[in-house]
């Protein structure tokens, strides 16, 4: 018994035995996460491609919809998401330094900002519902020339911001998991890979919004 124990290799904490060292393990996780994010890029790319085609076909109809978008809420939500990316990166930094309480605080802060984003999104969706700007039988549009074409933009608006919001909800769920893991002392300075990986996901969702905001809210420029 004593002999077999003596021959066991001593691993760094958190290191899986099929990796050479923690650095290699971390690089593999990062690479895998990026492969996933590239599939996400392709997924959103399809919708951005559809947007490109229809905006080229109906530039005037698309421009006319900007008048009915809530630009202040859209701009504030952009700020909220950027702020949440900052708190997320600070959470990763706290994990690197092994500061458990600061890590949990920043994760909760990020979670609250994510919820604030979704709440403001709800306010906007409700506004669209009241204004009959949801494509379908109940759709109404002030400029009757663009009745059909504007619906395409509103359809893209709900499809793209809706898919983005679903990604936010998934991100919020994963933040709750991270907070619970951190509270149970699952992370150490040597192993905090989930914080870093969910961070990558969170920033990706932020980047999608960075492109959605000008494309959906700021098409028509004269106001």
């Amino acid at each position: 018994m004593g002999d077999s124990e003596a021959t066991l290799a001593v691993h760094e904490p958190g290191l899986k035995h099929h990796f050479d060292d923690s650095a290699q393990q971390f690089q593999s996780s990062t690479l895998g996460m990026w492969v996933f994010l590239v599939t996400e890029l392709m997924f959103f790319g399809g919708m951005f491609g559809g947007y490109t085609v229809y905006r080229n076909m109906y530039p005037d109809a698309f421009a006319s919809t900007s008048h009915f978008m809530n630009v202040p809420i859209g701009a504030i939500n952009t700020g909220v998401l950027i702020f949440s990316s900052f708190t997320m990166v600070m959470a990763v930094r706290s994990a690197q330094l092994g500061q458990k309480k600061v890590l949990i605080a920043f994760l909760i802060f990020t979670l609250l900002l994510g919820c604030l984003f979704l709440t403001l999104k709800y306010v906007e969706y409700h506004e669209k519902w009241v204004d009959h700007h949801i494509p379908g039988p109940g759709f109404q549009y002030a400029d009757t020339r663009y009745f059909h074409q504007a619906q395409i933009l509103f359809f893209l608006y709900f499809a793209m911001t809706g898919m983005h919001a679903i990604h936010m909800i998934v991100g919020v769920g994963m933040l709750i998991v991270l907070i619970s893991m951190a509270a149970r002392n699952r992370f150490t300075q040597a192993w905090y890979t989930p914080v870093e990986m969910i961070g990558l996901y969170w920033h990706f969702v932020d980047i999608v919004w960075i492109f959605l905001f000008p494309l959906l809210y700021l098409i028509g420029h004269t106001k």
Binding site: T30, L31, W34, V89, I207
Partner: peptide
């Protein structure tokens, strides 16, 4: 965001290649 928050500027060449291929 990609370079600083997602830390691609310090990532391995293989990760940079995947990001570049996606774009």
């Amino acid at each position: 965001v990609v370079m600083f928050f997602m830390d691609v500027r310090r990532a391995t060449s293989l990760t940079k290649l995947i990001v570049g291929a996606g774009l």
